[in-house]
């Protein structure tokens, strides 16, 4: 066996390691047995039906979607503006600013969660949905900045300058030229922010008010008992959502950009 085939075998094993456990979750979610484990006693969709009828889980999905959607909107807006500044302008302190903007991911999430919670408690802001939202915005924003910056680098200002010199106002130029050009970057950033928010658990456990659960905290709470087939089914739904959505998004973005001929 030569070196290369050894490396290939290793890589195959690593991919199996990454995906096999998740595959087992999906497999077991179709298990007819009332225990969330082996052996498989038959194929059934009953656990998905149970999920649909479980109010707590449906509520958790609503909270997660609302939170993720609002987080994506806010952090993408401020993140895209900041990325424009960093990519398109030279100014004193730029290096420092770009480090500062990604600071929230350099701080461990627990520390960020504690600091924000205690500070807002001190200001008499109770644990609440807005606090949860602020928390999610601050730690998703750096990811938006990183993703959008990486995409913005390739977009030159020539087209905008052409529009300006042909008499378009800066506002017109922004909405008719800049924004459509930025659309894939904005989309990528928003998707990133949504997924990170949708998946977050550590900060959420600190910030969420009592009785409010997001999907991950709901799963976490259900795990305290034992692993039930319902959790596996919930896991499968989450995988379909969080893997399916970005893949769909990427396909959509590719279609849009190819239609534009870019």
């Amino acid at each position: 066996m030569n070196g290369w085939s050894f490396i290939r075998l290793h890589a195959i094993l690593i991919y199996l390691f990454m995906f096999l456990p998740v595959g087992v979750v999906v497999l077991l979610s179709f298990n007819d047995s009332q225990f969330g484990s082996f052996p498989m006693t038959g194929v059934s969709l009953r656990w998905f039906v149970e999920l649909w009828n479980n109010d707590a889980i449906v509520r958790a999905f609503k909270v997660s979607f609302l939170l993720g959607g609002l987080t994506a909107m806010i952090s993408t807006t401020i993140g895209v503006l900041a990325s424009l500044a960093l990519v398109r302008y030279e100014f004193p302190g730029k290096q420092f600013m770009s480090t500062l903007l990604i600071a929230p991911i350099l701080v461990p999430e627990v520390v960020l969660a504690v600091a924000l919670l205690l500070f807002l408690r001190f200001l008499n802001v109770p644990k609440s949905f807005p606090l949860l939202l602020l928390g999610h915005v601050i730690f998703t924003m750096p990811f938006v900045v990183l993703v959008v910056q990486a995409r913005l680098v390739g977009i030159t200002r020539n087209v905008e300058e052409a529009a300006l010199s042909l008499g378009a106002s800066p506002i017109q130029t922004f909405f008719t030229i800049t924004l459509p050009l930025l659309a894939p970057a904005i989309f990528a950033g928003a998707l990133f922010a949504f997924t990170i928010s949708f998946d977050d658990i550590t900060g959420t456990l600190f910030w969420k008010p009592g009785g409010v659960e997001t999907v991950p905290t709901q799963i976490f709470a259900m795990l305290r008992n034992s692993i039930s087939p319902e959790i596996n089914a919930l896991g499968t739904v989450m995988i379909v959502l969080t893997v399916g959505l970005p893949l769909f998004g990427a396909a959509l973005a590719r279609t849009i950009s190819s239609r534009r001929g870019a």
Binding site: F91, L101, V107, L112, L118, F119
Partner: peptide, 24 residues
Amino acid sequence: QPWILLSPALTAIVLLLIIPLAFI
């Protein structure tokens, strides 16, 4: 212009990260 573009993000970082860290 860059500072105008940066201001919402900087405000968020200062209010939700820097000051809370200083506070703890």
